[in-house]
Each structure stands twice: as C-alpha cells, then as structure tokens.
Write a protein that binds this DNA or RNA. Structure first.
Lengths: 209, 209
DNA sequence: ATCTGTGAAGCACTTCACAGCG
DNA sequence: CGCTGTGAAGTGCTTCACAGAT
C-alpha cells in the first residue's frame, strides 16, 4: 500500500509524544488524549496508524510502550544511521556540537570542507577531511544521510556529489531551492523560510487573533 | 479571500528563486522556467500567484524585479521584524551567531535565559536578560517573533509566556510537540524530526530508487 | 507563436459516523 | 459503555486544458 507522505511526517511527532508519556509512567493512551497533546484530531491519529496495523484495543486505547516500539520499527528508528557533514564553517560546527542527534540514533561519522585551513581539524573523534576526497571516502564507507552546511553558491554542487555517492537522504541547511532526482529525499532546515511564511499572517492580522 | 496555507509556504521559495534570477541579471522569467528551478509545476506557480493578482504578461512571462517586489510586499518582507530569543545555551549561541537573519530583515533584539551565570553576557550589541524579566521587557517593547531554544522540559512554559506577552509567531527549536492557541503561528525547526521521517523511505527501498 | 490566468476536473488528505470488540 | 478501525463523505489542493492577451 502507498502511504500518504503527510502521514509519514506525523509519525515522528507521535513517537515523541509517546516517549513523553512513557517517561511519565503512563501505560495506556487513547487517540483522544494523544490528539489533545499534539493538536491533532483523534480520527487522524487512528487513521494514520491504521495504515500500518491494528495497534489499539477497543474500549481501552493504545499500549504506550508497544505503540512506541511499533512506530520506531516502522520509521527505522530501531537502528543507527550514519551521516556525513559537508561544510565545517560556523554553522557546520554548531551542527557537530548539537547533542540531539546521537540519542536518537543519528551519528555524524564524516565531516568535509573545501577550506584547507579547516581540513585536519578535530571534533571529538572526528577529523575534517578534504572535500576533494568526498567521493572516495563515501564510496569506501557509505553513509545514509548527507548534511549540507555550505554557502548557497556551492550547495547544489555538493548535493549533486552526495547523490552521485549514493546518499539518498539530505538535510539541507543552505538557503537555496535545491534540485534532487526523483527518489532522493531532501529536507530544508531553514529558519528563514519558516519566518518568511509566518510574517504573512502577522502582517494580515492585528492583535492576538 | 482565504489563501491555502500551502500556497503561503511556497511563496518564500519563489522569492528566493527570483532573487537568484535577479542576481544573474535576468529581467523576465516564465512559470515554466521558475518551475523547473524549484521542482514545482508551472501551473502551480501560476495558480499560486493568481490568488494575489495578475503579475505576468501573456506571451512573455513575469518581470523578475516586479514579481519579487510584489511577493515581498505580500509576505511582509519589506519591513524589519523584531525577534526575542529565549535560551542562550549552546544552541541559542549558535542562533545568535547566525548571519542569515539580518539580511532578510529579521533582527534578534532581546535574549533571555534562566541561568544566572548567563544573564549579563553580551553578544554584539545584545545583553542577555533574566527570564524573570521576560514579561516586563516584552510588554514595554513588544517583539513580533519568539525563538525558543530551551530544554524540552521548560519549552511549553516558555511558549505560554511568550504567547501571554502577545507574541504571535514562534520558531521552536525544542524537541517537543508544543501546543499553541488558535491564531498563534508556530514552526518547528528541528533536524531530528526531518531525519526521522526520511529514514522511513531509506528503510523501505534499497539502492538509489 | 508564446505564455498567462482560470474554471473545471481530478486527486489526496481529513473528518465523519458507526459497526464491532473488549 | 468506551474506544478502535474504517468505509464513505467532505474538504482542500493540484493539475488540466484552453480562452485570451501580447
């Protein structure tokens, strides 16, 4: 069956709420309550989950631990994912220092830069390699995800190279509208884009309505 | 007229492509070419723009400069927007150091933290203030946007406070599924969420298809 | 000849509403 | 009786296809 992409985008939110519930010691939750926590309708949650199986108990709800396990399995969060960072400037360093990846199974295992002065720098157990070696390094030791943190002008080039190296998922921090072939997954991580659409609504309403 | 939210989300992408075209010295562009650059169908671009007016010339296309001006006006990008950062930890510092905001008219004008050791720290022209003073500072000097970069446990609280202070747009970096009242705009800026949905597709296909 | 602007058709996602199980 | 799972109805977004402007 073909699952609607929006459904896939919501599943990580569900896992997050379920983790919180588990931490609170809750064993069971209804679609109603989960929905209230997430700002999503209960019907939507039930429908979303129904694409993958029947995880609930009628009259009772969902077992928190069990549903969390199922969702993690469905999303592939029950394994480690290898990532390569390209661009070790200001932004790249912040990404290397971000502590939110590892606990969720995402590890940056390579870092590249074009700037010779940065090549050889060490961050924890990681040594920055030359972008010239990107293809050879990733061919020998493939990664699952590429993180692009280079200036806009060279971002499309870097993305093309990553794709050529077999990287099928890309997290793009560069402010460009990048192109990728069909079948390659790219997500923009960009505060400015998010801001620029919110301003439309700010502009068009006065006061807290 | 009520504009579909997805349309609003695409407009910033259009402005970005148009800026690039202008930098290249292009004066005119067709929906076809713009679409190719952005990975969007030409019909969608024409339809999206038609919600706001008739900006093109039949047989010719759109004047790049003019369309860019119109979109910036529509989105409210022709003015400055004031932002307050809450949380000046590792992530907050990276946000303060990010140089992508100012050129687009977004300025961080206040920074708050609960940690007494951080209060008083200076970043460029900005002095970190105590989170206790958040309400009084923002009441006297409102901001348009709140940026939340605090630990998950207190993020919802911070968001509630910002909303109480009249902030109607929030950029949330904290890994929680936050709740906001109707009419308040919240965007999640979260690499991990983006990764967790991409893994679904990685897991479910082998090779570059 | 070319490319826009747009009703109408088509598709995708959400919500409803209820049968059925615990 | 409460709550899930799900066809069916409803809504919203995208694409088509073409009249009309240059």
């Amino acid at each position: 069956m073909e699952i609607p992409p929006v459904v896939i985008d919501r599943l990580p939110l569900y896992t997050r709420a379920l983790s919180a519930l588990e931490a609170e010691g809750r064993e069971v939750v209804s679609s109603q309550e989960l929905g209230t926590r997430l700002g999503v309708t209960p019907a939507q949650i039930r429908k979303d989950l129904s694409y993958f199986g029947r995880f609930g108990k009628q009259g009772r709800g969902y077992n928190v631990r069990k549903l969390l396990d199922e969702l993690q399995r469905i999303l592939g969060l029950d394994r480690q994912w290898r990532m390569a960072l390209v661009g070790v400037g200001k932004l790249g360093r912040a990404i290397l220092g971000y502590e939110g990846f590892a606990p969720q199974g995402f590890r940056i295992v390579e870092a590249f830069d074009t700037d010779a002065t940065r090549v050889g720098e060490r961050f924890n157990s990681l040594t920055v390699k030359s972008a010239d070696d990107l293809e050879s390094v990733l061919s020998a030791n493939p990664v699952d995800v590429g993180i692009v943190a280079v200036p806009a002008e060279i971002a499309q080039n870097v993305i093309n190279t990553l794709v050529k190296c077999g990287v099928r998922a890309i997290l793009n921090y560069a402010p460009i509208a990048a192109q990728v072939p069909r079948g390659i997954h790219l997500k923009r991580i960009e505060p400015v884009l998010a801001l620029q659409s919110m301003t439309y609504y700010l502009k068009n309403s006065r006061g807290p309505a």
